[in-house]
Write a protein that binds this DNA or RNA. Structure first.
Length: 421
DNA sequence: TCTGGGGTCCTAGGACCC
DNA sequence: TCTGGGGTCCTAGGACCC
C-alpha cells in the first residue's frame, strides 16, 4: 500500500453558506441560490434539499414550492463568493502546503509520509479553524487516492456528525462501497453508468473488483485509471495551479435580443471581462472563437447558431484589439430576424505574456499597449469593477442579465459593507 | 415569461508523410 | 492489372467536472 494520503476538502452548500455568514437569521431555514440570470438553482441548504428541490432545477418550475415554504432566494453574487472562496483556500494553505484548488469550493490536500501523524485529528483541527476564521462549514474525506477521497468526502457529508471521514481501512471501505451506485464515483455520470451496468457493474465495489484491462478495452483509459484508484493505486496526482489553457466569457441575455448593436455591446462587455482574466493570469491569446445562439429550450421558435474562430498574427491581451476583432466576427455570424439568447467568446491557445515570439512582418507595439491595459486594470481594481469601461459595451444595456435578489457584496465593496445597528 | 457559466481531457477520424 | 502499412499531427465533438 502506498504511503501518500489525499484529503478532499469541500465546502458544504457553499453559496448558501456564504449568505449565512453575513445573515445568521438564515440558519436552519431553507435557502437557495440561483445561477446567473436567476435561471437555475445551483446551491441549496439542507432544508431546501429536504423539500425536494433538485440541483440545477429551473427556478420557474419550483417557484411555487419555494413560495409555499418560505424559501429564501438569492441571485448569485460571484464577487462575494469568489472572495469568500479565497479566504477558505488561504486558511487551508496556512495549514497544508500541498494544495490543489479544484473548484470554487473544493481543494485536494496531499500529505506525504504521514506515518507519525494523527491525520484524523489534524484534519478535525483544520476543519474547526476554517469554520472559526471564515464561518464556512466544510467536509473532509481522507484516503489513499483522489478518487477514494471523493468517496470518503461524500460519506463525511452524509453520514457523520464531525464532517471528517477516513476510508483507508480496506474492510471499512468495501462494506460502504458495496452499497454505493457506480455513478457516485467522481468521473462517472449517467452515460457511463449505463454502459457499466450493461457489463454487469453496478456498485462501486463491482468496479473496484473489475479487470482493469477489460475496462480499458471496453470503456477507455479514463475508466481504467478509476479502477486502479479505487484499489488504492494513485493515478492522479495533485495538479498545482497551472494557468488556464482557454478562457471563456459568455452569458445569456436578460431577455431575447434581435438587434446586432445590442449583441455587439454584450459581446464587448464579455470580451472585456475575458481579457481581464487573461491579463490577471499573465497570459496572451493566439486566437479567439466567437459564437451566438438562439434559445434551444424553445424549439418551436426559429433556431440558429453559429461560431467562428480567428488567429492573430501575434499573441495579444489588448482588450481593444480583441474586442474589435470579436465584433468583426460577430458581424459575419449574425443573421437578421432571429431572437438571440446568448453569445460569448473563448480566448484560445493561451501563452505566457513574456513569450515574445517576434513576427518578422507584424507591427509590434507591445510596450505601449501593455502600459495602457495595466493602467485600466489597476484603476478598476482600486476603484471597483467597471469604473473604466469601453463605450462599445453600451450604457443602457438592454441585454443585462436578471439578478433580482442579489445580496450585498459585503467583502469587496465599501458601499455594501455590513452595518450593525 | 422564466432552463448557468466555465473549464478539462480523451478519442476518432482525416490529412499527410514515407 | 496491381493500390500497404505505419506513423504523426490536428480538429471536432463527446464526456465529464463543479
Amino acid at each position: 500500500m502506498n504511503n501518500t494520503v489525499f484529503v478532499l476538502a469541500d465546502c458544504n452548500n457553499f453559496y448558501v453558506s456564504c449568505e449565512r455568514v453575513f445573515d445568521p437569521s438564515l440558519d436552519n431555514k431553507p435557502v437557495v441560490v440561483l445561477s446567473n440570470n436567476d435561471g437555475c438553482v445551483v446551491s441549496r441548504s439542507n432544508e431546501a434539499k429536504s423539500l425536494g428541490i433538485p440541483m440545477g432545477a429551473p427556478y420557474h418550475k419550483y417557484e411555487q414550492v419555494i413560495k409555499n415554504n418560505n424559501v429564501a432566494v438569492f441571485s448569485s453574487n460571484y464577487q462575494f463568493y469568489g472572495d469568500m472562496s479565497e479566504r477558505v483556500m488561504d486558511s487551508l494553505k496556512i495549514m497544508n502546503n500541498s494544495l490543489e484548488i479544484y473548484s470554487i469550493d473544493e481543494a485536494f490536500i496531499r500529505l506525504k509520509n504521514p506515518k507519525n501523524l494523527n491525520i484524523f485529528n489534524k484534519i478535525l483541527t483544520t476543519r474547526e479553524n476554517v469554520s472559526k476564521w471564515t464561518g464556512i462549514p466544510m467536509s473532509f474525506g481522507i484516503a489513499h487516492t483522489k478518487t477514494l477521497s471523493k468517496i470518503a468526502n461524500r460519506i463525511a457529508k452524509k453520514k457523520t456528525n464531525v464532517g471528517v471521514f477516513d476510508i483507508r481501512q480496506d474492510d471499512v471501505c468495501d462494506k460502504l462501497i458495496k452499497k454505493m451506485p457506480v455513478e457516485d464515483i467522481w468521473g462517472i455520470s449517467v452515460n457511463w453508468g449505463i454502459r457499466l451496468r450493461s457489463l454487469g457493474v453496478s456498485t462501486i465495489y463491482d468496479l473496484k473488483k473489475s479487470n482493469p484491462g477489460f475496462i480499458k478495452k471496453n470503456l477507455g483509459i479514463v475508466l481504467e485509471r478509476i479502477v486502479y484508484e479505487l484499489n488504492g493505486i494513485p493515478c492522479l496526482d495533485l495538479e498545482e495551479s497551472s494557468p488556464k489553457k482557454n478562457i471563456m466569457s459568455s452569458k445569456s441575455f436578460g431577455k431575447p435580443i434581435e438587434d446586432l448593436k445590442h449583441i455587439e455591446e454584450a459581446l464587448s462587455s464579455y470580451t472585456s471581462r475575458a481579457c481581464e482574466k487573461l491579463r490577471s493570469q499573465k497570459s496572451k491569446c493566439k486566437g479567439i472563437y466567437v459564437f451566438i445562439k438562439t434559445n434551444s429550450f424553445q424549439p418551436h421558435r426559429p433556431q440558429y447558431r453559429n461560431g467562428l474562430s480567428f488567429e492573430f498574427e501575434l499573441p495579444t491581451s489588448d482588450t481593444r484589439i480583441i474586442v474589435s476583432k470579436a465584433k468583426e466576427i460577430m458581424k459575419i455570424i449574425y443573421r437578421k430576424g432571429f431572437s438571440f439568447h446568448k453569445c460569448g467568446i473563448i480566448l484560445l491557445d493561451l501563452v505566457p505574456e513574456n513569450h515574445k515570439q517576434s513576427h518578422f512582418f507584424a507591427y509590434n507595439d507591445n510596450d505601449s499597449q501593455e502600459e495602457f491595459m495595466n493602467l485600466v486594470d489597476n484603476l478598476n481594481k482600486s476603484m471597483g469593477p467597471k469604473t473604466l469601461f469601453y463605450l462599445s459595451q453600451g450604457i443602457n444595456k438592454e441585454w443585462q442579465m436578471r439578478s433580482n435578489n442579489r445580496s450585498k457584496r459585503y467583502t469587496t465593496k465599501w458601499s455594501e459593507i455590513l452595518e450593525v445597528n
